[in-house]
Design a protein around this nucleic acid. Structure first.
Lengths: 232, 232
DNA sequence: CCTTAAAGATGAAAAATTTCATATTTCAGG
DNA sequence: CCTGAAATATGAAATTTTTCATCTTTAAGG
């Protein structure tokens, strides 16, 4: 457990700790966390910077973050968006020294940064723990892959439908946050121009597939969108 | 070691065994392989079928294979192409029961199929071995990711350049095989129509960037192609 | 409350891409 | 050697997508 009087919340409530201590002893887990820091990030803040050193394993307690890749030309591509509580940093943190992507808070986020060496120390004495953590990280990866497949196969229509459904079903459903991703971010996620996103969203709204409530996006016809996501 | 008088080749020469026994004892490795089978696949044969059960860890000794995803509509997308010797099946085999992709031989292939339960048994007693294997599998994954990023960001020009360079640098260079991927397969890899591949390859040839030698594709101007891969 | 910047919206022109029609080449099998 | 299927090639029409110009709305700061 983290020894700090100014903790944002108590480690007893931590879902990462609960999950981990199903496999490793509480004492072992708390030893791993002796260099761990709890951090808070506001909307738009960079948590991990592309090109920087990967020295921590990251657990997202609360909030929504995006993984993005930036080109020399300045354009961005969003690989995936996820909400906590979830282990992040399997793909780009586990076994690479340098971060491939940036990680940016899309909502107020609470994060624990575990020292990667402390994690490896525990991992080497607990093979089952490694397997469980990798499985966690893979889950996130698999979602990105299906998004990529949609990208490779579908036209913008289908790509935007896929992205909307993913965000609705996997990220914002049952979450305290509103589904309020900007058109520009949706464009970076669906890999098209932001004008195309704006047009497509307008059309989806005219057709009654989605609705707007202020900045919030609502899925009104899940089946029809699923159909578009698959076929078009 | 596999006890079989009709082995395609001897386990003493196996690079998977050499790599593994840097970390685990020879006896442990050979115990893991007691249910392992050596198999040979001809060009076009399916090694692993999308939707089928994932019961084996796969080591590609020799040959070239493609990972592909098939839609209900019948269209294919090639996720990546790799050449042996390499561990395959990290992403779709390690921690999923059902294969997400198909694996198809693009050349004569020699493969060892290790029972996943036998692997897990060894893994649970050797955490360092898990880490090493995951790292192997991640390497392959990272290549797919950069290909996906090119897909998301570039026009067909750049995507085809990226794919050609990847195949030339990572798959066919220093290999006994010829770079003879069909236009249709290149299209499935670069996510565009095969006509577009044909046109683009013709243009690249006219501009002296690539050359054909029978069915074989040659990269003539690596720098120029790299430029296109980055900027276009 | 005003000002300004950013986000959202719309339509037309330009560019990229796919589809389709058609032709040629290659290659395996009878 | 012939034949048919598959791969390669080419060009034009149709479609999709981006780019650009312009405008409105929203949100934040002074």
């Amino acid at each position: 457990m983290i020894e700090n009087s100014q903790l944002l919340y108590q480690c007893n409530d931590c879902s990462f700790r609960k999950l981990s201590t199903l496999i490793v002893a509480k004492e072992e887990f708390d030893t791993m966390c002796r260099n761990t820091v709890q951090l808070q990030f506001s909307k738009g803040e960079t948590i991990i910077k592309q090109g920087g050193r990967a020295t921590n394993l990251l657990f997202l307690h609360r909030g929504v973050v995006k993984f993005s890749y930036r080109y020399d030309t300045g354009s961005n591509y969003i690989m995936t968006i996820i909400s906590g509580p979830k282990l992040v940093g399997g793909a780009n943190l586990f076994f690479r020294d340098i971060n491939i992507f940036s990680l940016t808070a899309m909502e107020e986020c609470e994060v624990c940064m575990v020292d990667i060496e402390d994690f490896k120390r525990l991992a080497l004495s607990n093979p089952a723990y490694v397997l469980a953590m990798i499985e966690q990280a893979m889950e996130m990866f698999q979602h990105s892959i299906f998004n990529f497949i949609s990208l490779a196969h579908n036209h913008v229509n289908g790509r935007i439908a896929t992205v909307l459904l993913y965000l609705w079903d996997q990220v914002y459903k049952d979450s305290a946050y509103n589904f309020t991703v900007s058109r520009k971010e949706l464009a970076e996620f669906a890999a098209c121009s932001h004008e195309n996103v704006i047009n497509t969203l307008s059309r989806f709204r005219r057709e009654g597939l989605i609705g707007f409530e202020g900045k919030k996006i609502l899925i009104l016809n899940h089946e029809a969108l699923t159909e578009i996501s698959k076929k078009g």
